[in-house]
Design a protein around this nucleic acid. Structure first.
Length: 676
RNA sequence: UGGCCUAUGGUGUAACUGGCAACACGUCUGAUUUUGGUUCAGAAGAGUCUAGGUUCGAGCCCUAGUAGGCCAACCA
């Protein structure tokens, strides 16, 4: 057993506390409650990971509950997609539930509440009700219908249910408090009239319950112990509890456990959006090919892009759970998928931007089938054969006529290795009339075959190139993706619509040459194209034509050397050199008290030097340093001594500072000022 | 004129009230390498939003302030 002492997140702390306070472990029960009005995205995987993860951790059931109370927006297609995605992620739900299954129970409770004077039928327009509701900063006023008799309310509600009224003419409201600072408590609507076909209940109902009423009571009916949702529902908690307390009075025998809602910060990912409404817009306006377009942050998009469930789960686990707003850098997601694929994806060779390479001293009709290791990270992965011949394709980027010593690839007169094959040397180039290179001629060292063990084969050369034999090359379409948005937070700009940040070059279609081994590949297979990245076979592939999606590139430290056009430059400027001396003094002071003695000496020396270069005006603000920042005060004292020695007049501020320092508990500080 | 929530390296998350604030990503060095990948070794980067207070001792508790987020759908 590897008993990991992993630190707990705040939700786990709450659960642990409940457990130690006597809640039986068997009572633990969670739920994931999507509304079937769109596809799940990477943000949802956090919520899924939290609730299902807790279920796995505590061996507790987790219900998948579709919150289907708005037939106008919800569809069976979404139900199916959601189930598919959760299952693909590898989670198992205990029960497949629907809020619509509880409509009758909810209705009965609502009648009960009317009888108890806790709910009433309002018959105003939505505008009138909105006005009466007030604003966050001003209280609301009571509806003129607020004091209808129980009998009238019962009659009206019954008739609402019977379909006797037009949509929009009446609603059922909870009678709470129109002056509550929490607007959700200002007589929230429980039911509205709606003549719409529901994907499960058909036309059985013409009144539909609202979210707050339905969601909390669904938790209660399912006896969910911890109802976990995102931060924006925090204000709903008060109402959640109000409804729960009332209903509990009616049903405590049947449903003894009262659920507890807790909220966490949702996941945001840089360079993308996470709103279902906006994702739907991308789909509807055909900016992308569908919900599962590989550029979409949806689970189905990521799946098609080549992401694995393991990588996504690792990602969600790594980002953690807390209550503050956050934006996760996509580089973390990319790290997770690379880490997984590096261990599992077979290596193959493919050339995306080909130029012909001719080995002039290799026989014209000779073909060798060379051994290629499938995965150096996995000894059991085996190997496959790759054909080698006189004419090959290599990557255009892998050749330069002249190159400096930093360039490890092929150039004239220099040697490189062809992966799994021979060492070659650049000899000459053939160009067309425009000066474009059409052929590169080279010679090969016939004794240098990879793995042959000869002295020549063991020679160290600076670079290794991937290649594909021209005669044996298969063609394939490769879809190379860039981020969908050019802005780090496309929907965070008040003055600009997120659509303005769409990256016009988010998809590039490349016609590539691939080694014949790949002919066998089937939809969903994942490979590492050596030196390029990870790719997977897209479902658009046919028997005649293979199509690959680029999942993610390899880490590329070489690309970083070159000036890159992207906006992802490191922001940290190297301002160490030009930092004003006073800043350096502050920095040294910062750690002063924590340093071991020897380093303290060194720091002091440095401060003494720097202090020669500062003025009184620089130092004066530091006299006000907070008492507890002892280090800075010491640095200030040391510097002050230098100024005084150099003839600085004793101002009142100086005197105050010295006096106060002399009374400090810290001996280091006292020592510095006692002789001033 | 309001209510609620949050604030820790560039990013995300930790830290039993107590040893130089930990981990991951990212960044930078170096080594290894038939992938400029992987792996390995190392470095830089934080006075825990500010100011007070309680305490022998505060990232953590209290007060005030500042900044950001959420709240006015017959949506969820």
């Amino acid at each position: 057993m590897t008993e990991e002492t992993k630190s707990l997140n705040f939700i786990e702390h709450i659960i642990e506390e409940d457990l130690t306070n006597g809640m039986p472990k068997e009572q633990l029960r969670f739920r994931f409650p999507p509304e079937p009005n769109g596809y799940l995205h990477i943000g949802h995987t956090k919520a899924i990971g939290i609730s299902f993860g807790l279920g796995e951790k505590y061996g507790a059931p987790v219900n998948l509950r579709f919150d289907d109370t708005n037939p106008a927006k919800e569809e069976q297609e979404y139900v199916d997609a959601i189930k598919r995605d959760i299952a693909w992620l590898g989670y198992k739900w205990a029960n497949e539930c629907y809020s619509s299954d509880y409509f009758q129970q909810l209705y009965d409770w609502a009648v009960q509440m009317i009888k108890d004077g806790k709910a009433y039928v309002d018959s105003q327009s939505s505008e009138a009700m909105a006005t009466q509701k007030g604003t966050p900063t001003s209280v609301g006023t009571n509806s003129p219908y607020r004091n209808r008799s129980v009998e009238e309310n019962l009659d009206l509600f019954q008739r609402m249910k019977n379909g006797e009224f037009e949509a929009g003419t009446h609603v059922l409201r909870a009678k709470i408090d129109m002056e509550d600072p929490n607007m959700l408590m200002r007589d929230p609507i429980m039911y509205r009239i709606m003549y719409a076909h529901h994907h499960r209940t058909g036309n059985d109902w013409c009144i539909y319950p609202m979210y707050d009423w339905t969601h909390g009571e669904s938790d209660y009916i399912e006896q969910i112990s911890h109802s976990l949702c995102s931060l924006e529902f925090k204000p709903h908690r008060k109402l959640y509890d109000w409804f729960k307390d009332n209903v509990y009075q009616y049903s405590k025998n049947a449903y003894p456990l009262q659920p507890k809602q807790r909220e966490f910060a949702r996941l945001n990912l840089s360079y993308t959006i996470m709103s279902k409404r906006k994702l739907l817009q991308l789909v509807e306006e055909k900016v992308v090919s569908g919900w599962d377009d590989p550029r979409m942050p949806t689970i189905s998009g990521l799946r098609r892009r080549g992401y694995t469930p393991a990588a996504i789960r690792k990602f969600v686990e790594t980002v953690g759970v807390a209550k503050r707003e956050n934006v996760i850098d996509v580089s973390l997601l990319e790290f997770c998928i690379r880490e997984d694929l590096n261990k599992t994806a077979n290596r193959v060779m493919a050339v995306l931007d080909p130029v012909k390479l001719i080995i002039t001293n290799y026989p014209e009709d000779k073909v060798e089938w060379l051994e290629a290791e499938n995965n150096p990270e996995n000894a059991t992965a085996g190997s496959h054969k790759v054909p080698f011949s006189r004419e090959l394709y290599i990557e255009r980027e892998d050749f330069k006529e002249e190159a400096n010593s930093k360039y490890f690839r092929l150039s004239l007169g220099r040697e490189v290795r062809l992966k799994n094959a021979y060492i070659i040397k650049g000899e000459s180039v053939v160009k067309d009339q425009q000066g474009n290179i059409t052929e590169i001629h080279c010679s090969y060292d016939m004794d240098s075959l990879s793995g042959s063990g000869t002295e020549a084969s063991l020679r160290k050369v600076k670079g290794t190139l991937h290649w594909v034999s021209v005669a044996h090359a298969e063609k394939a379409e490769v879809r190379v993706y860039d981020r969908l948005f050019s802005d780090e937070a496309p929907d965070s700009h008040k003055d600009k619509d997120f659509m303005e940040f769409i990256n016009p070059n988010s998809l590039t279609i490349v016609h590539a040459f691939i080694e014949p081994y790949l002919k066998e590949a089937v939809v969903g297979d994942r490979f590492q194209f050596q030196r390029l990245g990870y790719f997977c076979v897209d479902e658009d592939s046919t028997d005649e034509k293979l199509i690959f999606n680029k999942t993610v590139g390899l880490r590329d430290t070489w690309a970083k050397q070159k000036p890159k056009p992207t906006q992802n430059q490191p922001k940290q400027s190297n301002n160490q050199h030009q930092r004003p001396p006073i800043e350096e003094i502050k920095q040294l002071g910062k750690k002063y008290t924590n340093l071991p003695e020897a380093k303290q000496e060194a720091a002091k020396k440095k401060i003494l030097e720097l202090a020669e270069k500062i003025s009184y005006a620089d130092l004066e603000p530091l006299f006000a340093t907070a008492t507890k920042k002892t280090g800075t005060r010491i640095a200030t004292a040391i510097s002050l001594a230098v100024l005084l020695k150099n003839g600085q007049e004793r101002t009142e501020a100086i005197q105050d500072f010295i006096e106060k320092a002399k009374e400090d508990k810290n001996d280091l500080l006292v020592n510095e000022v006692k002789n001033l």
